[in-house]
């Protein structure tokens, strides 16, 4: 997303050109521009902005799903409840912790897989498919997989480890649920593989060659050329992963059971699970929407922090594109 900065400079450079055009033509061009982007814009306003504002309004009411006829405006009561609801706050802290451990780990593993596969290996397309498989398997399959894997008695992992004489581990118990949750998430780390591979391909061969001539070994090349050049992509995936991870609710549900109205055990009871249960099980729509708006604010803050951090570690090529 370092693109933003680059884009702005490109657009700004283009501006004087527009002024040089005859007035009528520039007006026509502008019209064409609006025409081309109108599909997105109209849908965005009608089905993005309006629902958002309506949802914002409902979060200030006692809406429970059945009382449209006698809806009451209750001020900030729902928001007050968000901050006094110990379950919501604990879930938020838990979600943040799991996000800050799981997402960077996922980015690193996905990146390392790509680096491995970038070595001109035979059978590349097969390996790629296998690493990418978890990302394309249907949710129901992932749910079934991890329930069978993590079962304490007769579960796949415990049976496998049993061959080596290990005692059964309580994978989904209080002690292990969070690591198990992160492991099952890392299984999907190959989801970013294609973007990393594309990024690695985009590293100019000339840079690597000149480095080899200078006598830099593989590790030095990797540290001084590959990683810096990949930081924008790592940053992009980190940011998207962070946003996605805060909204995660399906993964804990699938680890718990196949029911969409299920109730994950506390160590993996995430903020979105709490919001989901309040809306779809307890029918507390107003409160649920307040929970979501608070989450939105939290994600925005963390996204901005990550954005701000990029000047310390993300490498952008200076000069022209």
């Amino acid at each position: 997303m370092g693109q933003v900065a680059i884009e702005q400079s490109v657009v700004q450079k283009a501006r004087p050109k527009i002024r040089l055009l005859p007035r009528k033509q520039s007006k026509r061009r502008a019209l064409e521009f609006y025409l081309f982007i109108s599909p997105w814009f109209i849908v965005f306003v009608l089905f993005g902005i309006i629902p958002m504002l309506w949802g914002l309004y409902l979060s200030f009411t006692n809406y429970t799903g059945y009382n449209f006829s006698h809806l009451r405006f209750i001020g900030a009561e729902n928001y007050h409840l968000v901050f006094t609801d110990s379950q919501a706050m604990q879930a938020l802290a838990r979600t943040a912790v799991l996000t800050f451990i799981g997402v960077p780990l996922g980015v690193i593993i996905g990146f390392l897989l790509a680096v491995l596969l970038n070595n001109k290996v035979k059978g590349l397309s097969m390996y790629r498919t296998i690493f990418y498989l978890p990302a394309i398997l249907p949710t129901v399959a992932s749910g079934l997989i991890w329930q069978m894997m993590y079962q304490t008695d007769g579960g796949i992992l415990n049976t496998l480890f049993g061959f080596f004489g290990m005692k059964p581990i309580d994978w989904m118990g209080y002690g292990m649920a969070q690591p198990s949750f992160i492991i099952s998430g890392l299984w999907g780390a190959g989801g970013g593989l294609m973007i990393y591979l594309a990024g690695l391909k985009g590293i100019p061969q000339s840079l690597i060659e000149s480095a080899s001539i200078d006598g830099a070994n593989y590790w030095r090349q990797f540290i001084h050329i590959t990683i810096p050049l990949m930081t924008p992509i790592l940053f992009f995936n980190l940011l998207m992963g962070l946003i996605g991870s805060f909204q995660n609710f399906l993964q804990p549900l699938l680890l718990t059971g196949l029911s969409l109205t299920g109730d994950p055990i506390q160590p993996i009871y995430l903020y979105m699970n709490h919001a989901w249960i309040n809306i779809f099980v307890f029918d507390r729509f107003g409160y649920g929407l307040a929970l979501l708006w608070v989450l939105f604010a939290v994600i925005l803050i963390f996204a901005l922090i990550v954005f701000w951090s990029q000047k310390y570690w993300v490498h952008y090529e200076s000069g022209e594109d």
Binding site: M1, Q3, V4, W40, F44, F47, G48, I50, P51, M52, W54, G55, L58, L239, M240, I243, F246, Q247, M272, A275, I279, F285, G288, L289, L292, W293, L295, F296, I299, L300, A303
Partner: peptide
């Protein structure tokens, strides 16, 4: 910039009201 921002917007904020609408 709005487009880039909507990429970062948690979809769930609009989903529930969208569903009602």
């Amino acid at each position: 910039i709005i487009i880039l921002a909507t990429m970062m917007l948690p979809g769930i904020v609009t989903q529930v009201p969208q569903f009602l609408i």
